[in-house]
Simulated assay, not measured.
Amino acid sequence: MELWFTEKQTENHGITTKVKRTLHHEVTEFQKLDVIETAQFGNMLVLDGMVMTTDKDEFVYHEMITHIAMNTHPHPEQVLVVGGGDGGVIREVLRYPTVKRAVLAEIDGKVIEASKKYFPAIAGMLDDPRVDVQVTDGVRYIQENKGRFDVIIVDSTEPIGPAVGLFQKPFYEGISEALKEDGIMVAQTDTPWFKPDLIRQVFRDISSTFPIARTYTANIPTYPSGLWSFTLGSKKYDPLEVNEDNLKRFDTRYYRPELHKAVFRLPAFVEALVSGGEE
């Protein structure tokens, strides 16, 4: 008998993968949390039935949500990650020797605990002395910490449940206030195939909050449709104007300096979303 996990990504579409065994299940204060061992992607973290990360393809998401902003800012010292309890973004942030403090504001401490146990390669840097783990509401944390950060990275789930507020203009305005005068933010903004209206609205909100707004994409096979978007807002530095010779090169598996500007060359239908046209 074979066991398969299916994520219903829309009313008419889902993905399915063969499961070897269930490693962990609990219902936290905020969501249903599962860790399953899959045949194709290794361990998989699932929140409320949605795939968050896997052993095999996690590097794409964590590198791409982190390095565009971090490598655009010339001297990032103070960094905030909202969400991201698996620790993957923190791991990538700490590659930068300029970073003095990296705050993780994760609302669900159980996600952090499960990630440390079942995803040590992802969560292994959460105990680094530069990391300040705050089990708290990211929206509230931003409101209480104005003008402190060089880079803020919003590593949220999809806009469901506790993450709904992380896709609204007041949140982006709060981020702007929490950033220093030359700060940069970036957020995951879902897939243009299934959430075109969300991408259109988020880009409109971020571009009306920051003088520079850019959307870019990456391929993540376990996320809905495989094509995933990120939206960056910056007060001063444009990722398209950085000197490529100054970009830091790390032992990464997806991001590299040669991709830094290329990822902003969007497919025509995605460009239409962010330019105010129709999908």
Rank of each mutant, 00 (worst) to 15 (best):
K8C: 07
T17S: 10
K20A: 10
V27P: 00
F30W: 15
Q31R: 06
I36V: 13
D57L: 04
Y61V: 13
I65Y: 05
H67N: 11
P74R: 03
Q78F: 10
Q78D: 15
V81I: 14
V81G: 11
V82M: 07
G88V: 12
G88M: 08
Y96R: 10
K100H: 00
V103Q: 09
G109Y: 01
G109C: 03
I112L: 13
E113W: 00
F119T: 10
P120E: 06
P120F: 02
I122R: 00
G124D: 11
D127S: 15
P129A: 03
D137G: 05
V139C: 03
R148C: 12
E158Y: 01
E158K: 12
P162C: 09
P162E: 08
F167D: 14
A178F: 03
T189F: 00
T191E: 07
P192T: 08
K195D: 13
D197M: 15
I206A: 02
P211I: 15
P211H: 13
I212K: 05
A218C: 14
T222G: 03
S225Q: 02
F230V: 05
V242T: 03
K248G: 09
P257V: 14
P257R: 14
L259N: 04
E271W: 01
E271N: 08
S275H: 08
G276M: 02
